[in-house]
Amino acid sequence: MTSYLLFIGTITAIYALLSLGLVVSWGQAGMVNLGLVGFFGLGAYCSALLTYIGAPIGFGWLAGAALAAAIGVAFCLLTRTLRGDYLAIVTLGFGEGLRLVELNERWLTGGSDGISGIRPPLKEALSDLYPWFYFTLAWAVVALAAWALSRILASPFGRALRAVRDDEKVAAVAGKNVLRLKCQAFGIGAALFGFAGALYAHFTSYISPDNFVIQLTIYIFLAVTAGGYSRLVGAIFGSLAVMTILESSRFAAEFIPGLSAVQIASLREFTIAVALIMIMQLRPQGVFGLRNERAGANASDGAPHATAVPATPN
């Protein structure tokens, strides 16, 4: 049981990292990235391929994050003339397009065979302690990212970001370099997605195009929304909530007699979906609300008030 919980806990940390990335680009800067699974895959493939040809694992991870960030910034620049909705579809197209490239460029990615035997860090040396090590490592990365992001978002940069999110024109009039701010936020988000992908690849040691399908994007959006969409702590909470629903439904399903296996599986996914819908209904502002919005509102840079109301305390 312990090793199962460690495993799920590590995956949760990876979900949390993805959620943090989405909080930066969507929650704080208002840019929708429906292709986050694409960036996740990019980081995973980048690190898997680099370490395959002999690069150190740490380098692979950073390279994965950097590549994802670079592509993210490029998208931001490319779509600078478009309305927000269109960034959503371009990123959605990117996610699906990248999956096709992963699937078909067999010389590079191994096609639908995927890449197996991705090197795990220090596994031999640690042996039985390895699951604990990776679990701790993943959560340390989450904590570090959350801490760094909270510093960044509390700074004038963070306030400027929220100003851009709430009204680009006003922010521009107030002298903000809107495009630059947006690219930075989107790039930070993409970097976190890429890093999470690299962490995932070296954790499970196998990746394939089928790993990077839209299901994951949905889970992460739900995690972030459940946690209040602009709150870092909320994102981590949301990831825990989503994973709890995903995994606990597995055990609940075993207690229903008289159903076929297909029915049990359908019922499980149905329950997951309904549970997520209910979370969104009950906690529209997320469990952690929009407290850090206020920083932007109180600042003297002329940013307009966030339109949302703060969550009521529990």
């Binding site: 739900l222 969409y229 359908s266 149905f270 997951i272 969104m280 502002q285 339109t307 949302a308």
Partner: peptide, 28 residues
């Protein structure tokens, strides 16, 4: 009914979950 800064997108996300629910009800 809840007004928020990103209600439209949240609705879209809920509708994806709803899609999943209906699809699995059909499979059931």
């Amino acid at each position: 009914r809840q007004s928020g800064a990103h209600t439209a997108l949240m609705l879209a996300v809920v509708s994806i979950a709803l899609n999943l629910a209906i699809e699995n009800a059909l499979r059931f």
